[in-house]
Design a protein around this nucleic acid. Structure first.
Lengths: 342, 342
DNA sequence: TTGTAGGCGTTATCAA
DNA sequence: TTGATAACGCCTACAA
């Protein structure tokens, strides 16, 4: 084993087996070219020495690695881990490893990861960026590292992207509430700097307009972040209004927010959906596990991931690759939180 | 930039700047040894060529990498991502990158990751293994790659481990319910093959015994997995019993299970905590966000991660390192799901 | 202050 | 079938 300081190399194996270094390499890479007897001798030497191939050296020689990386915005958000699952499966099919890097909304950390990954010469980088306009997102591909943007879009054609139609998602959520007869609807989410927030709100406005209602039918409740506490807070603000003018339904920019809202409303004695119908967004597992199971806009999370991974892999391998902007369409999962009282 | 096929190397930079290769290296590693004028010339050449250090080559030369990896059981479980956060922070302090690898309960995937990481010569591996007895967990350290086992324990002294005292956790959960006066308590969880399930059950039994109650005061409701649907199912089984002999409280092996149980019980018209008090385990964020906020056993997740990372870093760097088995003590967070009716 | 040379571990080419 | 050798890109002695 590693009794001596350094790990066994092909050279050590060759010496131990009494063959040349080239032969050891052949055993590793073209075993059919080696006679059975020497092959066995070499394999035994490898076992005895605890030989482990040095991927670093292989890579240096080969010029590229066998890994992909996903720089994710928030590993604690189930949405992103589901996306990552899709990537893992696609990566496995291509015999690549996927490393997850959690930027956790910290710009410096994201930049540090991107830098390391580029230096590491990974085959490709998948990223849900903090800021889709970050220059690194163009620099990496310009220098040869394929980048695919996930769950965000950009107009530029410097890389592929895979996203979901948030305008449509916002629209179907609002349409659902309108069809149930709600005419005062709260839109809960923010800050508006987040593209998703803007797009979903835009979709909701389209639905309101199409229903022939005035824009004021939509009450925008801005939050500071998409978190449970912010959802609770929005609930408190909602309940502070006199019942007469209070919205009868709320659509939230994501499920986490919706869960916070639900908790506060039920805690304050409201009945969901009778007093307040609630729609979430993302359809995370906990949405259906809520005490009042949440109606939610579902995105094809696994597919987003696998498609994105396929795109980087293609870009890395196919010289004739051309960039693609994939846009998936979300759908609505109706549950008890909006069910029309029977 | 990368117009030509290959990425710019120090050699290219040297040629472009009209200096020798060693000078470029000095600019990179010992800038103070280079005159300002040449340094600027070199830096400009690097910028023009879009030079990116090849970490692979550095590593080969240096013999070790600047990365740590955490092979996690389930990236979708918030508990593990919180642990990972702790590791990230510790890794950052040591100027190391942390890669997350999600085995997702698949033994082949776990083995594949371990293999790749070893070949990649990472500085150290953190892992919550599917099977703590897996031979690879001893082989890697034997060959020189430090391994720290997280949230599991082993008797062997071949590596460090960081875990939480599950017997104690089970005990304080049960004690809390006993103190509230409950005398028929359901223990929900399984399969028993999972060490955590066994330990927490053992702790609960200790508490029951210490309270002077017969072992039969604890009703074990075995589940097939620690998931929301299994929690719901357990709820249905619980409710199927006649009220007279039905437990008045339930402690669950984790929060996810507890959330499922809560959902089903409330859905079937029970009042929590009046008809059934519920204690979860892990204190995930969604536990406090439940409609009836969940009492839960909290583990020092962040600390588990940072301590584990510190241990691998130490093992990788300090020749005098000796293995340590760290055991943290969990505590109880009391919320509405067990609050004594006022 | 700058340049030269050797080697990290692997693989592929070519010769024996 | 096997063996010797030259790269891959970088870093560090050491020499100039």
């Amino acid at each position: 084993m590693s009794r001596s300081g350094h790990a066994a190399s092909v050279k050590d194996v060759a010496a131990a087996a009494g063959v040349s270094l080239g032969t050891v390499s052949n055993v590793l890479n073209r075993p059919e070219r080696v006679s059975t007897s020497t092959r066995e001798r070499v394999e035994q030497a490898m076992a005895e020495l605890g030989f482990v191939r040095n991927e670093t050296a292989r890579q240096l020689r080969a010029g590229s690695s066998r890994t992909l990386a996903y720089v994710m915005l928030d590993a604690g958000n189930p949405f992103f881990t589901d996306v990552a699952h899709g990537m893992e499966d696609a990566a496995e099919d291509a015999d690549l490893s996927l490393f997850l890097c959690n930027s956790n909304h910290l710009p410096e950390r994201e930049a540090a990861y991107l830098g390391r990954l580029e230096q590491q010469r990974v085959q490709g980088v998948l990223i849900t960026p903090i800021d889709p306009e970050h220059p690194l997102l163009e620099e990496l591909p310009a220098r040869g590292t394929p980048v695919v943007v996930v769950d965000r879009t950009r107009d530029v054609e410097t890389h592929c992207s895979v996203a979901v139609d948030d305008v449509h998602g916002g629209r179907i959520a609002a349409e659902h509430l309108l069809e149930l007869g709600h005419e005062r609807i709260a839109f809960v989410g923010g800050p508006e700097a987040i593209g998703q927030v803007r797009d979903r709100l835009a979709g909701a406005r389209l639905a309101v307009e199409a229903a022939g209602l005035p824009p004021s039918a939509l009450h925008v409740l801005t939050t500071d972040a998409l978190t449970v506490p912010q959802g609770r807070d929005a609930g408190a603000r909602l309940l502070a209004r006199p019942a007469r003018e209070r919205p009868t339904a709320a659509m939230c920019v994501n499920d986490v927010l919706a869960l916070g809202l639900l908790q506060r409303c039920v805690g304050l004695g409201l009945d969901v959906p009778d007093d307040l119908a609630i729609v979430g967004y993302d359809d995370i597992d906990f949405a259906s596990a809520a005490t009042v199971p949440l109606t939610s806009v579902r995105q094809p999370r696994h597919l987003i991931g696998s498609k994105a991974a396929e795109l980087v892999i293609d870009e890395a391998g196919d010289p004739g690759h051309h960039h693609e902007q994939v846009l998936f369409t979300p759908d609505l999962v109706v549950r008890a939180s909006t069910r029309r009282p029977a």
